[in-house]
Design a binder for these strands. Structure first.
Lengths: 270, 270
DNA sequence: AGCGAAATGGAATATTTATTCCACAACGCT
DNA sequence: AGCGTTGTGGAATAAATATTCCATTTCGCT
């Protein structure tokens, strides 16, 4: 196993790490554990640092590197150092320039919104509950018509979902409150509801979710956290922590999540 | 100047770098230049690497470190190594995990959308035309009612803009084509139009832009590139290259740009 | 042009860091 | 329990890396 060529990419590294995990003795498994959880620090640490973190002597860590397929620690570190910052650097400096503009300048504002969007996406990547997502997909895949509700700042997301479902040939209905009509009666047995709302929660959205719930329809909630008032009506809760800048949020994470949900549902329906 | 304590944060470092730049001799200025543009690589490089990049001997780089206020290169590197990984690294590995899920798994899709959103934001940061943005803000700041048009996948952006303008107490009207009514007559002298469309361009949006143009109203275009058909009707063009994943795009960059535009207009109107 | 001060490059040295090696301990097998 | 195999920790060594120093050059000034 350890006579192989060294992993050529970070992905390959992780694959090999996972593969070898089973067969490792105690100390080396400690190494694998710690490295898997802290692979991002390999680029900026020394053997001694990592060994201390994994609570093993440096020599154990060296052996680990060799078993994974590297000639030694340095070769492994090189992989991570090279992989670091493929497109970031130019972006990072550019963003700094943007942000350093005059206090109210448009470019500066844009920089802030870009940054908060990026942070939101990162935070979503870190916090997503895969099980809840799968469950939501499951519920929606087996439903008839999908009803979508979201007002005020959730409305752009709701309308985009509606557009995407149309493109995907999935029957969906956007409850947009046009003409202040209440379309709650459109909820039929076998349908499902996707409800989107953030603090301050919109009463109309909560009402519709409650109605759906009362009729035993599955409700998938896109909301800001598990304790949202929407949660009590929901069969699956997808929390999205969006980072605000000033009074407004970029919605990046919410839209990414909504899109993934839609496309996964389409895939599951085939 | 160089007798100071070392910079305690990356920001402070950059400030000091900018401050000292003026007074540096040739070689040291080369160092400053290169380091400013590649500060993200300090954490993962050696003195020799960076010196080679800046095209100076290692000793020059050492002197540079000391002038900035560090005891030497190692101390400077430590600052960047500690700062490294505030959010990105964990994010990176997490994303890798997401993407490595089964081909059609929801989590994997989400990973892809998150990544394309992030790329879009980065690309926007790199490519934004600050002059065009300022001009757009200017036009909108001096207009009466702001008309907003965007159909299909541009509609979420348009509707969000409409929401934000309402919050900001700026008179705005969303042309959403409800009831297939044409509200072109609502365009009054002194108003301005924000038109949003991407390939394949929506005819309704182009029509309204042409109408506004014919009546000599300023038109701000959010579109995919300078050669878009919308461009010929526009007084200011804001191109946004959004990265698609599959048939869908996350709209992150477009929304960030729209938000910045809106908030900057509000600031300029005061 | 000539002088002193400042800057520079490269070679010598000090320090840190990686790597190897081996004596010893733990484990599994008969 | 005895024996070979495998795993382990630490000390010795090798390599890489940072840092200093100083002879030489460049620069600014009169």
């Amino acid at each position: 196993m350890q006579a192989d060529l060294p992993p050529a990419t970070v992905e390959e590294f992780h694959a090999r790490l996972a593969a070898s995990f089973e067969s490792l003795p105690k100390r080396l498994r400690q190494c694998a554990d710690y490295i898997a959880a802290n692979s991002d620090r390999i680029a900026v640490s020394t053997v001694a640092d990592l060994a201390a973190g994994a609570d093993v002597p440096p020599s154990a860590l060296m052996r680990f590197c060799q078993i994974i397929g590297f000639s030694g620690f340095s070769e492994m570190q090189k992989l991570f150092r090279d992989a670091y910052s493929p497109s970031l650097p130019d972006y990072g400096t550019r963003l700094e320039n943007l942000k350093s503009g005059g206090a109210g300048s448009p470019a500066r504002l844009l920089g802030e919104f870009i940054e908060s969007g990026r942070l939101s996406l990162e935070s979503l990547a870190k916090s997503v509950d895969e099980a809840a997502l799968e469950q939501a997909v499951n519920l929606l895949a087996h439903a008839g018509t999908l009803h979508i509700v979201g007002y005020r700042r959730a409305f752009p997301v709701a309308s985009y979902l509606s557009y995407v479902f149309e493109k995907l040939n999935i029957p969906a209905m956007l409850h947009d409150g046009a003409g202040k009509l209440d379309h709650a009666h459109a909820l039929r047995s076998g349908d499902a509801l996707i409800a989107i709302t953030f603090a301050p929660y919109s009463a109309e959205t909560l009402d519709l979710a409650a109605t759906a719930r009362a009729r035993a329809l599955p409700v998938v909630a896109l909301t800001d956290h598990m304790a949202s008032p929407l949660a009590q009506h929901a069969s699956a809760i997808l929390p999205v922590a969006e980072v605000d800048f000033g009074a407004f949020r970029a919605l990046s994470a919410t839209i990414a999540l909504a899109l993934a949900l839609a496309v996964a549902v389409a895939a599951a329906r085939e």
